[in-house]
Design a protein around this nucleic acid. Sequence first.
DNA 1: CACCCCTTGTTAAATCTTCAATAACTCATC
DNA 2: GATGAGTTATTGAAGATTTAACAAGGGGTG
Lengths: 165, 165
Amino acid sequence: MSKEPAAEPRWLTDEEQYAWQCYLHATTLLEDHLDRQLQRDAGMPHVYYGLLVHLSRAPRRRMRMTELAQNMKITRSRLSHAIARLEKNGWVHRENCPSDKRGQNAHLTDEGMRVLEKAAPGHVAAVRAAMFDRLSPEQIRQLADICRVMADGLQPKGADLPWLR
Amino acid sequence: MSKEPAAEPRWLTDEEQYAWQCYLHATTLLEDHLDRQLQRDAGMPHVYYGLLVHLSRAPRRRMRMTELAQNMKITRSRLSHAIARLEKNGWVHRENCPSDKRGQNAHLTDEGMRVLEKAAPGHVAAVRAAMFDRLSPEQIRQLADICRVMADGLQPKGADLPWLR
DNA sequence: CACCCCTTGTTAAATCTTCAATAACTCATC
DNA sequence: GATGAGTTATTGAAGATTTAACAAGGGGTG
């Protein structure tokens, strides 16, 4: 039954193309900018910094690997590599999960906490300078709405389905 | 004069933190999604596809390396590696620039054009499904405005200043 | 218990990106 | 036309990410 290869793809309108170009430029430039800012000031890329932030907010600064990966929207594999690197730096420590012998908890060490606290002000300043100090309060709300819609559409539907491939 | 280390960093408000989280989730998920879609359907990551698109729109399908890098907001180094890979695939061809012996032109080959044309419909569909079919026309305008402001703030001020580090 | 399927987390290899260094060339000035 | 400063593009090495495959444990069913 009807399996034609989409006779006429609906191309983007001029407005959509423009928006798409702006989006790609903004996201690329911002990610690059923050990666460099953090690499310079804290010796790690942006995603790694995000991992420390998440851990610092978790109860007892601990989180299961899978949960952390889900919160950060990255694969478990990527997380494994990242935590391995952060552990080598002494900023995170792995420990076995008591309730599940397969599991691992990532634990933000005191030294990791110090690194985070030292890097945070500069990073917030960079994020502000790039985004929040340039947008109106209304635009910030609009951006949140827009991004929430997009993220919802890209998340696995069932909360427990094979997540991220 | 006044060189204190920013006495009190202005942290993000709750609204700003929420918007930032949404932004990070949406951009991460979308980029991952498109990377996988294109890797699967066209055998290349999203940025490489973008390179082919840009070349296909250039006069005579040719562009100077630096100009292409600037348009794509990536470093020349990254572009060199990427073009080397695309050239190995036979999708792009390098040629010397007639007017500047230092220069190189990247040229989209016929085969590259075919690959692009074959990949385009699926890619547009993915972008639509993730973004444009989920947002209202007004939201699309808002997004473009927001991203333009951010991109402007992250661009080098002088058009000819050492660009992107 | 035995069986099977699912989840958790890691790993190796291939690929991609970043960073710093470099060769080759242009252009302005002397 | 020589000198020197800046531009163009590339390279190798180190670091990061993806992919597929895997070991090991959980948890339900007979």
